[in-house]
C-alpha cells in the first residue's frame, strides 16, 4: 500500500491538521461511520498529546462564557445510547489491535472499500490543489531570462509577523496584473479583507476587497516602475464589511514583492 493511501496515516494527517478542508470533512465523516478509523484518530491524538504540555494557558475574556451558554440553546445533545454503542466498538478495536490499526482498516473488504473512498476524497482534493498550483509562485525557478530582465515575474507573501503565510501574490509584468490568493485567512464576522498597495512615496491605494482568489488590474499598479513595485508594501487590512475607507484601518498582514 502506498503511504498516501494508508488510512492510518490519513488519520495522522487529520490529527496533525494538514488535511485540506474537503479531505477533513471526508475524514470526519469516515470516522463517524468506521470505528477502526475513529480508533486510529484517537491513537494519533494520544501520540501527539504530550506536546500539549508545552502550550501556554491563556485566560479567556469573561464575556466569552455567556455567548457559549447562549449558543447551547441551539445545540442538541444526541441520543446517548447510539453514541455509546459506537464508542464501545471503537474501544474494542483499540484494545484488541493496539498498534495495528492500519491492518484493521484494510482487513475486511468493506473496510477496504471505505478506506479507498477516503483515498479518493484525498485524491480529488489534491487534484484541486494541483490545479491551484498555477496560482502559486512556482518553486521551480524560471529559466534564466537575461534577454528580458524586465519581464521577470514578481511574487510575494503577506503574513502577520512570525505567523503562517496568509496571502500569496504574483505580479505578471506582461499583463501588469496582480494575482492574489488567500491561504488560511478568513476575516472576522462582519468585516472584510481589503488589499492595499502602499508605495514607498505617496498614499496607500486600495486594490479592492479580497474574498477569494482574484486577479487585480489597477491603474495604480500599471503606473509604478518595477523598482517602485519592489519597494512598495502590500498589505491586507480588516475593514467593517460595509465601510468605505480611504486608508487602511487595521493592517493584519503585509509583505513585499520579490523576484520569483
Amino acid at each position: 500500500m502506498k503511504i498516501a493511501d494508508d488510512p492510518d496515516l490519513i488519520a495522522g494527517e487529520y490529527v496533525l491538521g494538514t488535511l485540506e478542508a474537503g479531505e477533513r470533512t471526508a475524514a470526519e465523516e469516515f470516522a463517524g461511520k468506521e470505528p477502526g478509523f475513529a480508533a486510529a484518530v484517537i491513537a494519533w491524538e494520544h501520540r501527539f498529546a504530550p506536546l500539549n504540555d508545552l502550550i501556554v494557558a491563556v485566560e479567556p475574556p469573561i464575556d466569552v462564557w455567556p455567548k457559549i451558554a447562549e449558543a447551547l440553546d441551539h445545540t442538541v445533545q444526541p441520543e446517548r445510547a447510539r453514541q455509546a454503542a459506537f464508542m464501545t466498538r471503537v474501544a474494542e478495536i483499540s484494545r484488541f489491535y493496539g498498534a495495528n490499526l492500519a491492518d484493521v482498516l484494510v482487513q475486511s473488504r468493506r473496510r477496504w472499500r471505505a478506506a479507498a473512498m477516503v483515498g479518493f476524497a484525498v485524491a480529488i482534493a489534491l487534484a484541486a490543489v494541483l490545479i491551484n498550483q498555477g496560482m502559486r509562485p512556482s518553486p521551480a525557478k524560471a529559466p534564466p531570462s537575461a534577454a528580458r530582465p524586465s519581464a521577470e515575474r514578481l511574487a510575494g507573501v503577506l503574513r502577520y509577523p512570525s505567523a503562517a503565510p496568509a496571502f500569496l501574490l504574483a505580479f505578471d509584468p506582461g499583463e501588469r496584473t496582480l494575482q492574489v490568493r488567500p491561504l488560511n485567512a478568513s476575516p472576522p464576522a462582519g468585516s472584510r479583507h481589503e488589499l492595499w498597495l502602499i508605495p514607498a512615496e505617496g498614499d496607500p491605494v486600495s486594490l479592492g476587497a479580497v474574498a477569494g482568489p482574484m486577479v487585480v488590474r489597477s491603474e495604480a499598479l500599471g503606473r509604478l516602475s518595477r523598482d517602485a513595485l519592489k519597494r512598495a508594501v502590500f498589505a491586507i487590512s480588516i475593514e467593517a464589511a460595509d465601510a468605505t475607507v480611504s486608508r487602511p484601518t487595521a493592517i493584519a498582514f503585509s509583505g513585499k514583492l520579490e523576484i520569483d
Binding site: I3, A4, D6, L9, G12, E13, L16, G17, T18, E20, F48, L51, L54, I55, L126, V129, L130, Q133, R136, P139, V157, A163, A164, P165, L168, L183, N184
Partner: peptide
Amino acid sequence: LAYYDGWSREALAVEFDAPAATIRTWLL
C-alpha cells in the same frame, strides 16, 4: 508548525519552498 500553529500544507509549501504534494509526502 502544523501541530502547534495549525499551518496548512500550502503554508508549509511556501515556508519550505516545495510543492504542496511534496510537503504531503514528507508529512506522511
